[in-house]
């Protein structure tokens, strides 16, 4: 179980990205975070594995206080939290295989990994992960030779290498052609069904309805909604996304729903 308590993040330039956000995530949930761009979704996800240091507040994973972990402890915690990014964040010039193997860095012998030497078991695991996302044949391609959808699948395979208990997915389909959204989210759904906790930020409401087991919504860094997907009616929608966005989003919501 993940417990976020009074999480606040103020950037050095004064931007208040998160304000006193608290919620809990039970093991095995598919929690979707929604909100406008700049509402603090990315900051929230990055605070959980401390890619961004929270200004105040606490994050507990079972009994471990992530916010109080030393650098070495933090690396051990991060090994079990896979992350998938909007821009895939692959090393474009490296091969798909190297990208996937790099998901194993937290486990690997530091010195051998610096020399680029990987145990056969890890390579086998990487191939299995690539098979699981259906692109084992691309293992030796350069990452930037792949299409966007394929690159995101490499991103998922990399996260799988971590043997994760939690997957943080930051807008995993926002950079993709909308028709590819389901193909990516289905992999996350499958992982969720295999017992992983998934915390995912999304833009399209139809996707939220389709995949989320629970939803929280952020507006200007404040949690404005927490509940089941079906509880987001027009009034809630208006509250989350604001008056101005209403027309456009509502239209697209209706068109896609």
């Amino acid at each position: 179980m993940l417990r976020i308590e009074n999480l606040t993040k103020i950037y050095p330039n004064g931007t208040r990205a998160l304000h006193d956000v608290s919620f809990e995530v039970q093991d095995g949930e598919f929690l979707v975070v929604i909100g406008l761009s700049g509402s603090g979704k990315s900051t929230l996800l990055r605070c959980i594995n401390r890619l961004i240091e929270p200004t105040s507040g606490k994050i507990f994973w079972d009994d471990i206080d992530i916010t109080a972990a030393s650098p070495a402890e933090l690396r051990h915690i991060r090994r079990h939290i896979g992350m998938v990014f909007q821009q895939f964040n692959l090393v474009k010039r490296s091969s798909v295989m190297t990208n996937v193997l790099s998901g194993r860095l937290g486990y690997a012998n530091p010195w051998l990994s610096l020399l680029g030497i990987w145990p056969a078991a890890d390579k086998e695991m990487a191939l299995k992960a690539l098979e699981r996302v259906g692109i084992a044949d691309k293992a030796q391609s350069r990452a930037d030779a792949l299409s966007g959808g394929q690159q995101q699948r490499v991103g998922i395979a990399r996260a799988l290498m971590q043997d994760p208990k939690i997957i943080l997915a930051d807008e995993p389909v926002a950079s993709l052609d909308p028709v590819l959204s389901h193909s990516i989210l289905q992999y996350l759904e499958q992982l969720n069904k295999d017992g992983l906790t998934v915390i995912c930020s999304l833009h399209f409401l139809d996707l939220v309805h389709r995949y989320a087991t629970r939803v929280i919504a952020l507006k200007d860094g404040v949690k404005v909604f927490e509940g089941l997907p079906k509880e987001i009616d027009r009034a809630k929608f208006k509250e989350i996304y604001g008056e101005e966005a209403q027309e456009v989003r509502a239209a697209s919501f209706e068109a896609e729903a």
Binding site: L51, R75, I77, R79, M83, F85, L90, G103, L105, L114
Partner: peptide, 15 residues
């Protein structure tokens, strides 16, 4: 981006 991604896997600074 890749730095963030590699850090998120639990890699150390040199890795």
């Amino acid at each position: 981006g890749p730095i963030e991604a590699i850090q998120a896997t639990g890699a150390n600074r040199l890795q």
